[in-house]
């Protein structure tokens, strides 16, 4: 009984929950901002990279190669290392502009670099899932390769990859907390500061609660999209 009491007091104390709430909430707003900016950037860069990876012909081989190297590197490197590399490495270069950014910006850059690699693969799977005959039909009407991609292939591909895309974004949301290691005053950082000051861990539960509350609607929305698609596919198959 004593042990349970200790656990409740250390992690679930209503008193400390209320006390930690304002600081952690302030920090969590930074997580949300990082997430929104990074997601927007990832959506654009990843689509560009996916299209580059699919370019036909020998002339595009070097570009395709670069895109492959990029995705291999950033998919294979743990995010926390990229955060260190960007957050501490770039300021140390002492270059103009780029070395003088805020830690918030470095956090966004690191998240964007890594998640662009993941999302490129998601887009690529989507592009490849659009049947060859669609491309052929578009090209046969006199549309160029890029026009066929833009008006026929990519719109269909994007619709198909929305659920896996949302899954990756759930990952990104949570990974914004890793940026704490370079000193961004986001939710995890605030929670840690609080727990050191008050020798109580409830602040971490506050941060966890925020992340969970943000994730659940997105997860349910993803489920809903998948269910809707399945229903539609069954209807058209008949």
């Amino acid at each position: 009984m004593n042990a349970l009491h200790k656990v409740l007091e250390a992690f679930f104390s209503p008193y400390y929950f209320r006390l930690a709430l304002p600081d952690v909430w302030a920090g969590f707003q930074l997580n949300v901002k990082m997430m929104i900016v990074a997601e927007a950037l990832v959506l654009c860069f990843a689509l560009g990279l996916a299209i580059v990876r699919g370019l036909p012909g020998r002339a595009a081989a070097p570009l395709r190669g670069l895109a492959i190297v990029y995705t291999d590197f950033f998919r294979g490197t743990p995010l926390i290392l990229v955060v260190f590399l960007v957050g501490f490495g770039i300021p140390a270069l002492q270059l103009r502009v780029i070395s003088g950014l805020s830690f918030f910006a470095y956090g966004v850059i690191a998240l964007t670099l890594v998640y662009t690699a993941y999302v490129t693969e998601v887009y690529r799977a989507g592009i490849e899932s659009v049947h060859q005959s669609q491309r052929m039909a578009a090209r046969s009407l006199g549309l160029s390769y890029m026009q066929a991609m833009r008006y026929v292939v990519v719109p269909q591909a994007v619709r198909r990859v929305v659920p896996p895309l949302l899954n990756d974004f759930i990952g990104l949301q949570k990974d914004t907390a890793l940026v704490t290691v370079i000193g961004v005053a986001e939710a995890a950082q605030q929670a840690q500061n609080f727990s050191t000051t008050w020798a109580n861990f409830t602040s971490y539960m506050v941060a966890a609660t925020f992340f969970i509350l943000l994730t659940i609607p997105l997860a349910r929305f993803t489920d809903h999209l998948i269910a809707k698609r399945e229903l539609k596919e069954r209807a058209t198959a008949g």
Partner: peptide, 25 residues
């Protein structure tokens, strides 16, 4: 050219299917 499997663009309406190439090409 017209194909055996029609190959209409499923994300576009009939009108959009017919006008895409005249507009863009």
């Amino acid at each position: 050219i017209v194909f055996q499997a029609y190959n209409l663009f499923p994300h576009m309406t009939v009108l959009q299917n017919v006008t895409l190439a005249p507009r863009k090409s």
